[in-house]
Nucleic acid binder design. Structure first.
Lengths: 188, 188, 188, 188
DNA sequence: AATGAATGAGAATTCATTCAT
DNA sequence: CATGAATGAATTCTCATTCAT
C-alpha cells in the first residue's frame, strides 16, 4: 500500500483548521485550511469528505482533549480540594490553549454541528459531573441537575474567557470562578 | 448611541432581519431580509450601507429593548424582592421574545459585531448593575466587579435558554436561576 | 420596475448556449455561455436557475422551432406532394440550421433532459404524424404506429445529417430520404 | 486492427468500463471504473494512457463483437431468409446485450471518439453490407450506397431500442424492423 | 507492476453590492 | 427614492492524472 493515508496529515489538517478558524472565523476557506496544512486543496477532501465533516471532527477532538485535561486531576485531600484541582486544570488548559477554547466556542455557536457532535460534546462533560456527583463532592443542591451542569459549564467558559483576556490576572479569575461554583453546589 | 430618527422602513428592515436570522442563521441573505421587509433588495442599502451595519444596528436595538424590560421592574418591598422582580421581568422577556433572544446570541457569537456595538451591549447591562449596586442590593462579595457582571449575564442567558426550550418548566428554571444569582451576590 | 428581465437577454442566452454547445459539446461551461451571451457569469442564473434548466429549455425551444418549419408546408396537389413538401421543409431547415440540429441531437442523447422535455420533444412531432395520418396520407401499413413514427424520425435525422455533411449533395439525400419514407408508409 | 495481445486485466477494465458507463453514463469516473475492475485507480492508466483511449478502445471492441454476431448468420435458403437470419441475430444480440448496445450508442453520440474509432465502427458494418451486396441479396435500389447503409444502421438501432424497451414485444419489433429494411432494399 | 494518496485546474452556483431605469 | 437585474469575486467540491512507496 503506497503512501498510506497518514494520521499525521489528518491531524495536520485538524490543527490547521483550528488555526485558520481562530484567525478568520467560521467562514475560513477550505483552500486556506489546506494551504495552512501544507497540502493541495483537493487533498483535504481525501481526509474529510465535506467541510462540515471536518468542522464536526474538529469539535469532537478539541472537546475530548479539553475534557481529558480535567479528568485526571480530580484528586486532593478533601472534596473541595479535589474539585478545585480539577477546576484549575480545566481552566488553565483553556487559558493556555486559547485558540482551541475559542474554536470550540465558535463551533458550538454555529449551525454546523450535527446533533451527534453536540451530544458528544455534552456527554464529554457528563462523566466529570457524574464523578463529582458520585465520588468527590456530595452535591448539596436541589436544582434540576441538567441545569446545574449547564450553569457550571457557562461559568467555566466565562472564567476561561477572562483568564485568556487577562493573563496577568488569570489566577484571580480562576479562583473567583471556583468560588462561584463551590457556592452554587454547596448548601448555604 | 442609537440612530437619529428611525423611520418606519428602517424599523421594518430591522424587524425583518431579526425574523430571517432567527430562521436561517447569520448566513441569511440580504435579499431574503429585504423580501421579508417587503422592499426591494437594493432598497435595503439605502437604509443600511452594508450588511454588517444592519447587523450591528440590530444588535444594539435588541440589546436596548432587552435591558429596558428589566430597568423598570426593579421594585419591591426589600432588596431580594426588588432583584427578583427585575430578574423575572428580564428572563420572562427573553422567554417570550425567543427570536430576539436567539438573534442577540447569534450576533454576540459572530465576528460581525464592531467593538463599539459589543461595548454598547456590555454597557447596556452596566447601568442595571450600578442600579443594583447602589440602590437595590448591597453586593456582598469580593469578586472583581466586571467578572461578576459577566457571570450573572452568562447565568441569565442559560436561564433564558432553558426557559425557552422548556416553556412548561419556565418558572422553575427562572427561580433556580435567580437562586443561583442570589447565592453568588450574597455573602454566605 | 427598473431594468425588467428582458426577453431579448433570455433569448441571447439560449442562442449563446446553442452556439457554445455546438462548438464545445455538452460540457460547455456556464461561464463560456455567459461570455458568449455578453453577460456576467452570475446573470445567467437570473434567467435560468440551473444549467440543466437552461439545457432543457433550449431543447424545447429548438424542437418547437424545428417542428414549426414543417407544419406549415404540408400542402400540395396530392398526398405524395403534400408529404414531400413537408419533408423538404423539415430537412432543409435542419440542413440550414445545422447548429440547431446538432444541438438537438446532443441534448437528446444526453442525460440532462427531464422526462417532461423529452416528452415534449416527442409530442412535438406527434401532431405532424396525426396530420399525415388523418388528412394527408392514408397510411397503408400494419406497423405499430409508435414504431413507425420513430423510424421516420430516425430516417429524418440521418437524412439531415447527410445533407449537412454534404451540402453539395443535399438535394440528392433529401430525395433519397423521402423515397425511403414513402416506401415505408405505402403498401407495396 | 484491435490491439496486440489483450491480457486479462485489460479485458477486465474494458468490461468494468462498460458496466459503469451503462450505469452512470459517460461521466463515469475513472476511479469508479477501476473499482469495478477490482484494481487501483492508478493501475487503470498503465493499461490505458487516458480515459479517452479507454473509451475508444471499448467502442471498437463492442462494435466488433456486435458485428460478429451478425456475420456468421447470413445463411438461409434464399436471399430474404439469409438477410432475415442475419437481421435477427443482430438485433437479438443487442436485445440480450442491452448494456453493450447502450454503451455503444452513448459513445457514438459523445465527443470522445476519435475519427479513427468512428471510422472503424462505420467500417465494421461495411463488410456486412458488402456481403449482402455481393453474395446474399442483389440490392435493387438507386440510393447512394453509403446513405443506404446508414439508414439501415439507424433503423437497426431503433429496432434494438424498442426490443430492449419492450422485451415482451421484442419479436414483433424485430420483424417490423426487418420488413422495413426489406422494403427499402427491394424494388417496389 | 501495483497501489491509492496527492495534485490543482476547473465547474456550478451564491450573494453583497451597484446601478440603469 | 424605489426597484430588481447585473455584476463577478469567491466558495466548495470533483476528477483525470501523477508519483511516492
Amino acid at each position: 500500500m503506497a503512501r498510506p493515508k497518514s494520521n499525521d496529515k489528518r491531524n495536520n489538517i485538524l490543527a490547521a483548521c483550528k488555526v485558520v478558524i481562530a484567525r478568520d472565523g467560521l467562514n475560513a476557506t477550505t483552500a486556506d485550511i489546506a494551504k495552512e496544512a501544507g497540502i493541495a486543496t483537493g487533498s483535504l477532501f481525501t481526509y474529510f469528505p465535506t467541510k462540515t465533516d471536518l468542522l464536526n471532527e474538529l469539535y469532537v477532538v478539541l472537546k475530548t482533549e479539553m475534557t481529558a485535561a480535567l479528568t485526571d486531576k480530580l484528586s486532593g485531600k478533601n472534596n473541595r480540594e479535589k474539585l478545585h484541582n480539577g477546576w484549575a486544570a480545566w481552566t488553565d488548559w483553556a487559558a493556555i490553549n486559547t485558540e482551541k477554547h475559542v474554536v470550540i466556542e465558535l463551533l458550538r455557536n454555529s449551525d454546523q454541528l450535527t446533533k451527534e457532535s453536540r451530544a458528544f460534546g455534552d456527554a464529554a462533560i457528563k462523566p466529570v459531573f457524574d464523578l463529582i456527583n458520585a465520588n468527590v463532592v456530595k452535591l448539596e443542591t436541589n436544582y434540576p441537575n441538567d441545569f446545574l451542569y449547564e450553569l457550571i459549564d457557562a461559568i467555566s467558559i466565562k472564567t476561561m474567557d477572562k483568564m485568556a483576556a487577562r493573563p496577568d490576572k488569570a489566577a484571580e479569575y480562576r479562583e473567583a470562578g471556583f468560588e462561584t461554583v463551590w457556592k452554587i453546589i454547596t448548601k448555604g
